[in-house]
């Protein structure tokens, strides 16, 4: 029944609109019951965040420019994390999502080694929250125990709720992910890539489109739009030019 819908959920991220405010990171943290990151986690390199903003500096002073790129699970069609899991804890579902099944996971962390984008998180400890926050956890999302992997699910709970509420008449743009809602500049667009009229499909055909690490042939469902650089013709332009193919 689900297969008939033939959906392929995807995302388009316009890096030109991203100002690196980290609103999406916080929204994701709240929506998906991700434990808070304290100093110890940063020091030990065990930060949990399903979406992160990578920052790159370009150019020499005074013509220096910060570039931001939000990175989350790319939901690759040809995902390197999937074949290596011995227990099928991660697999591709028929809606184009790379799914993590927490109950099956035994924590070999093999998928995380396979992932070229390093977006898979491992629960080294049992997750804990301060008492005040415990009452604010999202009841739609499982709390992951220690010893298992987790990663961006493209707000699976929102997709399911949207489908349930709309029945057959699911309109494009009806389902919004948490990061998309939180993005002040509207850099993130979510939708069905198989629907040729959806906003994501139109945006994904843009001249500015590119995907991360195309040389690995992972075929991600997350498409990035390159920055439009006003300084392109000046001394900074070289990198932006290569991005715009």
């Amino acid at each position: 029944m689900v297969a008939e819908k033939n959906r392929s959920w995807g995302m388009v991220i316009d890096t030109d609109k991203c100002n690196g405010c980290s609103g999406c990171v916080t929204a994701c943290q709240v929506e998906n019951n991700i434990p808070l990151n304290d100093q110890n986690k940063f020091e030990r390199g065990r930060v949990m965040s399903w979406i992160r903003i990578e920052r790159y500096w370009e150019g020499e002073f005074p013509n220096v420019k910060a570039r931001f790129i939000p990175i989350m699970c790319q939901h690759c069609e040809n995902a390197p994390c999937e074949p290596v899991c011995p227990v099928y804890a991660t697999y591709h579902n028929n809606e184009g999502l790379n799914v993590q099944v927490y109950n099956r996971c035994v924590g070999t962390r093999y998928c995380a080694n396979g992932c070229p984008y390093i977006v898979r998180m491992f629960n080294y400890w049992e997750p804990t929250w301060p008492e005040e926050i415990r009452n604010h956890l999202n009841p739609d999302v499982t709390i992951r125990s220690r010893g298992i992997m987790e990663k961006c699910s493209m707000c699976m709970q929102r997709i399911k709720r949207g489908e349930r509420n709309a029945g057959d008449q699911l309109q494009d743009g009806e389902i919004k992910t948490a990061c998309q809602e939180a993005c002040t500049t509207g850099a993130i667009t979510f939708g069905d890539l198989n629907d040729p009229e959806s906003e994501v499909s139109i945006l994904a055909k843009s001249d500015r489109k590119y995907s991360l690490m195309p040389q690995l042939n992972t075929n991600p469902n997350v498409v990035y739009l390159a920055t439009v650089d006003p300084y392109k013709d000046k001394n900074l332009g070289e990198k932006a030019k290569t991005n715009e193919h």
Binding site: G45, R46, I118, F122, Y124, W125
Partner: peptide
């Protein structure tokens, strides 16, 4: 207590 007792991290 979990694998936090090791020195492993991400990545």
């Amino acid at each position: 207590y979990g694998l936090g007792v090791t020195g492993l991290n991400r990545p």
